[in-house]
Amino acid sequence: MDGTPQEITTLVGREVYSNNGVFVGEIEDVQLDLDAESVTSLAVGELNNELFADTVSPGQGVLIPYRWVRAVGDIVLVNNTVERLREADDAEEAVA
């Protein structure tokens, strides 16, 4: 991106891929921190069933922390999502 501010709504509908080029899903919504005026997470649906079959029920989505985003263009590139989501689930269980 060229640094020009864009509407957050332009993210909705973009496809999300891992750094390895694997389709993750499609952005359905964004989660914001209004105080910091920043995006905190991407709500991703239309998930790749092969990646999420063991962790997410059909028809559900996932929240991907925006800090995992590596690039935003015609598509959105994120860190290797599957390992990251498993690490986050393990951390949440340890806290609970």
Rank of each mutant, 00 (worst) to 15 (best):
A88M: 14
R84H: 10
P65L: 07
Q31D: 02
E87D: 15
V56H: 03
R70W: 05
V39S: 08
V69L: 13
A94F: 07
V12T: 00
V56P: 01
D89I: 15
V82W: 06
L85W: 01
N48D: 08
V56G: 07
Y66Q: 09
T55N: 06
Y17R: 14
S41P: 00
E83F: 12
V78L: 10
W68T: 11
T4N: 08
I75H: 11
V95K: 15
V56K: 03
L47C: 09
A71N: 14
V95S: 15
S38F: 01
S41K: 07
N49S: 15
E87G: 13
I27H: 02
N48I: 01
L51C: 04
S18R: 05
Y17K: 14
V78E: 03
G73P: 05
N80Y: 01
E50N: 15
N79K: 14
G25I: 04
V44S: 02
V82Q: 13
V82F: 13
V16R: 03
A71P: 07
I8T: 09
E92S: 08
D90C: 14
V56I: 14
R14I: 03
N80R: 05
T81H: 03
V12W: 00
S41H: 14
N80D: 10
E87Q: 15
N79C: 12
D2R: 10
S57F: 12
T10A: 10
D90V: 14
A53M: 10
P5I: 06
D89T: 14
F52Y: 10
T55L: 13
V82S: 14
G3N: 11
E26P: 00
E87I: 15
S18N: 13
A94W: 03
A71C: 13
E7C: 06
T4H: 04
E87C: 14
G25Y: 03
Y66D: 09
V16S: 06
E7R: 07
T81A: 15
P5G: 10
D33E: 00
A88W: 09
D2E: 10
L32E: 11
L34R: 10
E7V: 01
V30D: 01
E87M: 15
I75F: 07
S18Y: 06
G3H: 03
D54F: 08
